[in-house]
Write a protein that binds this DNA or RNA. Structure first.
Ligand SMILES: NC(=O)c1ccc[n+]([C@@H]2O[C@H](COP(=O)([O-])OP(=O)(O)OC[C@H]3O[C@@H](n4cnc5c(N)ncnc54)[C@H](O)[C@@H]3O)[C@@H](O)[C@H]2O)c1
Ligand SMILES: NC(=O)c1ccc[n+]([C@@H]2O[C@H](COP(=O)([O-])OP(=O)(O)OC[C@H]3O[C@@H](n4cnc5c(N)ncnc54)[C@H](O)[C@@H]3O)[C@@H](O)[C@H]2O)c1
Lengths: 210, 210
DNA sequence: ATTTTCTTGTGAAATATATCACAACAATAT
DNA sequence: ATATTGTTGTGATATATTTCACAAGAAAAT
């Protein structure tokens, strides 16, 4: 363990973590790599290899304890403290998302919203604080915000991302159908675009092989 | 060209396609692999290697014509005809998504919605047809629907996916925070979960290296 | 006309990831 | 007690992907 964890492994861990949360809610106590394969489609030897990067945590002969494996992933992925997030763009999508200020299983909390339209800022009804977007730098630093969610029109996405990075945000989820680039090697970006996902599916369908 | 296109290449093409659409709207006519690197962060040699899988399309010395490269990707990814999609789960998220029946740049059209709550089906105000979810198999076959979007609670996601696959859907975008598995090798699944994306960012942040 | 500057396309090499195969051990059955 | 079955963890191997390096050709400059 403690070697560098491959990126595909990190991404699978995040899926498996969600699965473990759901299993725990169902009252499942133990799970084997074969059962995880059955539920995720990821081959059991890949799952075991993944887990080997974060140390021995299973029981030879009887598999993994759900709670223990979950906690182990939590610790190794740095999810064991709540991180603060903000959202930029309070239109239809953004104002929907802030209705769930707690995200994932409570590992993230949206604490601030921004919009360039002062009218939106003044009239929106929400439980979190909202600000005009020229206050991004101030508020992000003051509140210790580490993550940003972008829900502005595509043509504005890169400039908003640049501002968030400038303010010190270290991770960005972008909902705009625009490819935005990290200009800092200490900030990571994930794009979430339903159109893009449909294109990927469409292309895979045309090639008949996962 | 015409070899099997690697999956990471397919995914990058989908990003680059969106970028080319946006560039075209801005009136940009030509672009080089170095400029694409500047805009996406993907190294120029990777971009050129990717493009080499779909044949020669650039001009030595002067780069790529935006319209031509875009069309070339469109053809090779099988995006050159509109595909029909349906959405299952017409709650807050699902009823929001059907307000945009045309997705991506018009390559996809949502033509039907389903919900298990008959009251929702009867009262929802929308321009697309809605049905109780026991009619999934019928409607999917009748309308020639190829893609499904899942927006039901996580505990219901796998059963809905199974029904869609049974009905003949070949690609699924899942918004529920649940890992769902394809039980058929001719159906592909993409999960879109903001919580999962935040976890991935969080993990990357903890490891300081993309 | 000739030189210089760009740029693509692609085999070859390097790196990263996934798969295999099995020793080691625990649980269960006989 | 012993045999059988089930399961993990991990080196070794195979496969996939990325990066490199440069020939070849077009455009621009001189
Ligand atoms: N709504 C959806 O279901 C959906 C689906 C797919 C993609 N998207 C994408 O998500 C993004 C948001 O969609 P939407 O429907 O909420 O759009 P919207 O037009 O309703 O809202 C955009 C908001 O961003 C604000 N804004 C604009 N420029 C800004 C800036 N520079 N700084 C801060 N705020 C700014 C606007 O004032 C507005 O409130 C868009 O990029 C859209 O393409 C949305
Ligand atoms: N709303 C968001 O912004 C958001 C954010 C993150 C994740 N999600 C996820 O997206 C999914 C939908 O969220 P939502 O807020 O729209 O939930 P919701 O409760 O508002 O809507 C769910 C809808 O699904 C229907 N449904 C339930 N079981 C069904 C079945 N078996 N077949 C067909 N329809 C069924 C319900 O009748 C309801 O209309 C959930 O999994 C949620 O966790 C939503």
């Amino acid at each position: 363990m403690n070697k560098k964890i491959p990126q595909p492994t990190v991404i699978r861990f995040c899926s498996i973590y969600q699965l473990l949360c759901n299993l725990e809610k169902e009252g499942v106590k133990k799970v084997s790599s074969a059962e995880l394969e059955e539920k995720t489609g990821v081959p059991s030897h890949t799952i075991r290899k993944d887990i080997s990067f974060i140390g021995e945590v299973g029981n030879t002969g009887s598999g993994y304890e759900v709670a223990k494996l979950k906690q182990h992933i939590l610790n190794n992925l740095g999810l064991n403290r709540e991180r603060k997030a903000c959202i930029v763009g309070l239109g239809r999508l953004g104002s929907g998302i802030i209705q769930w200020p707690l995200l994932a299983e409570g590992e993230f909390r949206i604490v601030a919203g921004f919009d360039s339209n002062i009218n939106t800022v003044e009239t929106i009804k929400t439980s979190i604080s909202v600000f005009p977007s020229h206050e991004i730098a101030d508020v992000v630093k003051r509140m210790g915000i580490e993550l940003g969610i972008i829900a502005v029109p595509p043509a504005r996405a890169q400039e908003v991302a640049d501002r968030l990075m400038e303010a010190g945000v270290k991770g960005i989820v972008n909902f705009a159908p625009a490819i935005i680039k990290s200009r800092r090697d200490d900030c990571f970006i994930r794009n979430m675009d339903i159109g893009g996902e449909l294109r990927i599916l469409s292309a895979m369908m045309g090639m008949r092989s996962q």
